[in-house]
């Protein structure tokens, strides 16, 4: 304590200025669930990025001799009905699943943030957008995405487009709600009254206030996107049969569940662990960044 006061004032000043962020980061580092889920996600990311090193070879390669091999030393997760290595399928399939999830999250959350800010500040836009959000949120997104696949064809880009579109709605509502709260704050009124330009109010007051809810929301959107892609690919209107993802890997597995349950178990387990880690990360971020929101749950 006294040491910090006597040594470099620069450090102390920096510490003071960055204190809200630093405490949030500190709380994050001390939050066991947050750290555990982050570790799991980093591990999953590394495994899929390093797929060609960890599980070299073509995951789609058929090997009729080795059909339905149980998990063991040669095939960690066994082989499927075509003799394909399930471990390789899981590791390589994760690339598509996580990549689609990431892209959808970035696209939908960015658009939702912009629209949410606009909606929160312009009443006319808000009325229209909110009816739209009501319509989208109540309606099953899988059905909309399925319909989209009918017209645009099943492909990675269709999935990204459709999921990004439907997942704008929940984030848009969160950002808009936060903006409505922030704009009523006295400091904003004061800033407006003294003639601070709108753009500066956005940057100085509104954006920082919506950052925390957006971060929390992004975790849940990521989780919803990964699940959505898997569900769409599973029913055959997702990324298409030539690509590989966890959802795709499960499509044919149903027919062989009695003979080779490992075909079902491992891709699904990978999927569930990913979704679980993202949900737990979202819950922990909510605890850390906004205790008031966490209690309302």
């Amino acid at each position: 304590m006294t040491a910090a006061e006597t040594t470099g004032t620069e450090e102390a000043r920096e510490g003071f200025g960055a204190s809200p962020n630093r405490t949030a980061l500190e709380r994050f580092l001390r939050h066991p669930t947050a750290m555990a889920s982050t570790a799991v996600l980093v591990l999953l990311g590394l495994v899929t990025i390093l797929a060609p090193v960890i599980a070299p070879g073509d995951p789609m390669r058929v090997n009729p001799v080795a059909r339905f091999t149980a998990p063991g030393a040669e095939y960690f997760f066994g082989t499927d009905n075509l003799g394909r290595d399930v471990f390789r399928i899981v590791v390589h399939g994760g690339r598509t699943s996580l990549l689609v999830g990431l892209v959808v999250t970035v696209v939908s959350v960015s658009i939702a943030t912009v629209l949410g800010l606009v909606s929160g500040f312009f009443h006319q836009v808000d009325i229209v957008l909110m009816r739209f959000v009501d319509g989208i949120m109540a309606f099953p997104s899988i059905v909309l995405a399925t319909a989209a696949a009918a017209y645009l064809g099943a492909s990675v880009s269709t999935v990204i487009l459709a999921l990004s579109f439907v997942l704008i709605a929940p984030s848009l509502r969160v950002v808009r709600g936060q903006v409505l709260v922030v704009r009523e704050l006295q400091m904003i009124e004061a800033a407006r009254a003294t003639g601070v330009p709108t753009l500066r109010i956005f940057r100085r007051y509104v954006l920082p206030a919506v950052t925390s809810p957006i971060l929390v929301q992004a975790s849940f959107i990521f989780s919803a996107a990964v699940l959505g892609e898997a569900a769409l690919s599973f029913i055959g209107v997702g990324i298409g049969p030539t690509d590989l993802s966890w959802g795709n890997a499960l499509t044919e597995a149903r027919d062989y569940i009695g003979r080779a349950p490992w075909i079902v178990i491992f891709p699904g387990l990978a999927l569930m662990i990913t979704i679980l880690a993202l949900n737990l990360l979202g819950d922990s971020l909510r605890d850390i960044l906004d205790p008031r929101l966490a209690r309302r749950r």
Partner: peptide, 22 residues
């Protein structure tokens, strides 16, 4: 409940079939 929220229902369906039907 945390696990339940994270389980994909189509995968859960396959597990149910494996356990209760097969």
């Amino acid at each position: 409940a945390v696990l339940g929220i994270s389980v994909p229902e189509f995968w859960f369906a396959l597990l149910l079939i494996f356990l209760f039907s097969v």
